[in-house]
C-alpha cells in the first residue's frame, strides 16, 4: 500500500469524524465567548442525535433524499430549545454553570432514552434508510490528485462544517455582534456601561451553542452511527469542548483542533488496517486529544486562556 493510497483512506475518514466535532466546538465557542461555560455540549449532541434519527425514521418516506438535511434543521431547533434551560439556569438564576451543564447532560440522556422506549418500545431505534451518503463532489472531484484526496468519497456535511467555521470566525471577529459577544465574556460590567444588554447577549450565545450542538449530534447520528441508543454519543461532546480549548477559543483554531481530533479518532478505528500503524496500540490515539488539551492548558503547547469572565454570573451593581 503506497503513501497516497493511505491518504486516500485517511483523509475522507478524518473529514467524516471531524464534522460533528467542528459544529459542536463552534457552538461551544459562542457560548464560552459570551462568558457561559458549556459542558452541556455532550447532552446537546445527544438530543440532536436523537431528534435527527427519530425525525428521519418518521419522515423518510415523504421527504425522500432531503430527509437528512431537514432532520438536521429539526435537531438544530431542539438543541437550541434544550440550551435555553442551561441559559435560564446559568444566566437568570445564576446557577453554577458547570453544575447546570452536568444537569443538561444527565437530562438529555434520560429524556432521549425515555422517549425511545416510549416511541419504539425498545432500547434503541431502527437503522435509518436515508442517512448522509458518500458522494463525489461535482467538478471539484475532477481536480487531479487533490480532487481524489479531498472531494471524492466524502460527505457534504464536512464541507458545510468548514464553511460554518469561517462564517463563525467572521461573525465573531468582524461584526458588531461578535464584538459585543466577546465584550460580554471579557468584561460584562464595561459592556453593560456601554449599553450592551449582557443578559441578552449571553442568552444568544448559549442558544447558538445549543443549535450548533444539535447539528453536531444530528450529523454524527446520520453519517456515523445511523441509529440512536445509549452509546451513540459517548464523549464526542466533551471532545468538542477539548477542541474548543485546544483551539484557544477561536473558531478557526477550534476547527483545526476538531480536524486533528477527527484524524486521531479515525486512525484509532482504521489504523489496524494500515501499515506502520498496525503495531501501535490504538489507546495512544484514543487518549491523544485529551492529553494534548491538558498540555495546551498547561502552556506546553502555547498557553490557552479563556475569556476573562468565563463562568461568573453577571449581577448588576456588583463590583
Amino acid at each position: 500500500m503506497g503513501f497516497m493510497d493511505i491518504l486516500y483512506i485517511v483523509v475522507p475518514s478524518t473529514l467524516l469524524w471531524a464534522a460533528p466535532l467542528i459544529f459542536t466546538a463552534l457552538g461551544g465557542n459562542f457560548s464560552e465567548r459570551s462568558g457561559i461555560v458549556n459542558i452541556g455540549l455532550e447532552g446537546l449532541m445527544v438530543i440532536g442525535a436523537f431528534t435527527a434519527i427519530v425525525f428521519n425514521l418518521a419522515f423518510d418516506q415523504t421527504l425522500g433524499n432531503l430527509t437528512p438535511w431537514i432532520s438536521l434543521l429539526v435537531a438544530m431547533v431542539v438543541g437550541a430549545l434544550l440550551s435555553v434551560l442551561h441559559a435560564v439556569a446559568s444566566i437568570t438564576f445564576r446557577a453554577d454553570q458547570t453544575v447546570s451543564g452536568v444537569a443538561i447532560n444527565l437530562l438529555a440522556v434520560g429524556a432521549a432514552l425515555f422517549l425511545v422506549k416510549l416511541f419504539y418500545g425498545k432500547g434503541q431505534t431502527d437503522i435509518i434508510q436515508k442517512g448522509f451518503s458518500k458522494i463525489d463532489i461535482p467538478v471539484l472531484s475532477d481536480i487531479p490528485v487533490l480532487g481524489k484526496l479531498f472531494f471524492s468519497n466524502t460527505y457534504y456535511t464536512s464541507f458545510v462544517a468548514i464553511i460554518v467555521a469561517f462564517i463563525a470566525w467572521f461573525v465573531m471577529f468582524k461584526t458588531p455582534f461578535g464584538l459585543r459577544l466577546r465584550a460580554v465574556g471579557e468584561h460584562p460590567m464595561a459592556a453593560d456601561t456601554m449599553g450592551i444588554n449582557v443578559t441578552r447577549m449571553r442568552y444568544i450565545g448559549v442558544i447558538i451553542s445549543g443549535a450548533l450542538g444539535g447539528i453536531g449530534g444530528g450529523v454524527y447520528a446520520q453519517s456515523i452511527s445511523s441509529d440512536f441508543s445509549h452509546a451513540t454519543i459517548s464523549g464526542q461532546g466533551f471532545m468538542a469542548l477539548a477542541a474548543l480549548i485546544f483551539g484557544k477559543w477561536h473558531p478557526l483554531g477550534a476547527m483545526g483542533a476538531a480536524l486533528f481530533f477527527g484524524f486521531a479518532q479515525s486512525l484509532s478505528i482504521i489504523g489496524s488496517s494500515l501499515p506502520l500503524l498496525e503495531n501501535i496500540p490504538n489507546v495512544y490515539l484514543l487518549i491523544a486529544p485529551y492529553i494534548l488539551t491538558i498540555l495546551a492548558l498547561t502552556g506546553f503547547i502555547g498557553r490557552a486562556e479563556g475569556p476573562k469572565a468565563l463562568g461568573t454570573p453577571y449581577i448588576k451593581g456588583n463590583r
Binding site: A95, V99, L107
Partner: peptide, 15 residues
C-alpha cells in the same frame, strides 16, 4: 434519570 437530572438542575438554580 430524568428526575435525578431535574433535581440537580433545581438545586443548581436554587436562586
Amino acid at each position: 434519570d430524568i428526575i435525578i437530572a431535574l433535581i440537580v438542575f433545581f438545586v443548581a438554580a436554587s436562586y
